[in-house]
């Protein structure tokens, strides 16, 4: 993303005014070293990320080894929470289900997004900007409301059921629409659509068009050309899109809480429960750490696999 070859920012005027002491030493260092200047500009942001992300995540890891009785948290280092997870089938099942649902969501989102990204990259000649904006705008707007819209659509008295009843096509509301894993997968695939399109679009846009011409000249039909040139060259975008969709959806809370019902709950709901009714914060921390580990494992396996596929193809 960033090239390491930034040209010199130019020497700042007034170097070396000889004021004695620490200030002068710092000034000399500041003016002489580009790295020091860069990091001083970066330091407020860096401090924020350290104190609002890194330190809390570290403490989360430490807290996952604590225990809680009623309201008292005992900060001693024990493996109780992890043992509980190893013993409880229901917990493991929930994590497994979360990974599975997110996997389905990722595949569905990519399959739906790819033709759209392809369309914008290769078929749209004018107003490309407008198309990109049209695709991305919903992503920035209220996630809660977008998910809730699906509850209105799939609900017992929702759009589909009441619509079909009014038309007289069904006699009683369809109950299989809401409160299951299908509803969760559909809603998540809808909510994360834009996240998948952009990276795929960028990698398609980058493809050198002369390569496609070359393939055509050398006798590849459109289908062969797509599978042998376009698709392989767009794989970096597909991989990025897969990660961008998979990682955040594993821990999703709103969608399974609103649309999942008991059969569609995910690990995020279990984590939240530890901070509400169950009131076992250290267990919640441990579940988070386990989820992060599981996500990391899946991502590494996926990256390794996609790299292998790509190198074999070349």
């Amino acid at each position: 993303m960033v090239d390491g070859t930034a040209p010199k920012a130019g020497s700042v005027s007034g170097a070396g005014t000889g004021r004695p002491g620490l200030l002068s030493w710092w000034r000399q260092l500041y003016l002489r070293s580009e790295g020091v200047r860069g990091y001083s500009l970066l330091s407020p942001t860096l401090l924020l990320m350290v104190f609002a992300i890194a330190v809390p995540l570290l403490l989360l890891f430490v807290a996952s080894f604590w225990t809680q009785h009623l309201l008292d948290i005992t900060p001693t280092f024990v493996f109780d929470n992890y043992l509980t997870f190893a013993e409880k089938d229901s917990y493991q099942k929930l994590l497994w289900r979360s990974l599975k649902i997110s996997g389905f969501v990722t595949v569905l989102t990519l399959l739906l997004a790819y033709p759209m990204a392809y369309f914008i990259a290769f078929r749209i000649k004018q107003n490309k900007l407008m198309w990109i904006i049209l695709i991305t705008v919903p992503f920035w707007t209220s996630y809660l409301l977008r998910v809730f819209a699906w509850k209105i659509i799939l609900g017992y008295n929702g759009v589909i059921n009441s619509g079909l009843l009014t038309l007289g096509w069904i006699q009683a509301p369809l109950e299989f629409l809401l409160y299951n894993q299908f509803a969760v997968v559909l809603t998540l695939a809808h909510a994360w659509a834009a996240f998948a399109i952009l990276p795929i679009y960028v990698s398609l846009e980058k493809i050198d068009r002369t390569l496609l011409e070359a393939a055509t000249v050398l006798g590849d039909g459109p289908v062969m050309r797509f599978f042998r040139v376009t698709l392989p060259l767009s794989m970096p975008g597909v991989v990025a899109a897969a990660l961008l969709v998979f990682i955040p959806t594993v821990g999703d809370y709103i969608t399974p809480a609103l649309l999942g019902g008991p059969k569609g709950l995910m690990i995020g709901n279990l984590i939240q429960l530890q901070f509400a009714k169950a009131n076992n914060w250290p267990m919640g921390a441990a579940l988070s750490v386990i989820s992060l580990l599981a996500i990391t494992l899946v991502v590494c396996a996926f990256l390794w696999f996609s790299k292998r596929v790509r190198t074999q193809n070349l």
Partner: peptide
């Protein structure tokens, strides 16, 4: 490191901050 907040699931950042 600076882009990490976009990738870590929100619920995990939320409870990490709640604990600290």
């Amino acid at each position: 490191f600076l882009m990490a907040p976009l990738v870590v699931p929100g619920i995990i950042v939320g409870i990490a901050l709640l604990i600290i």
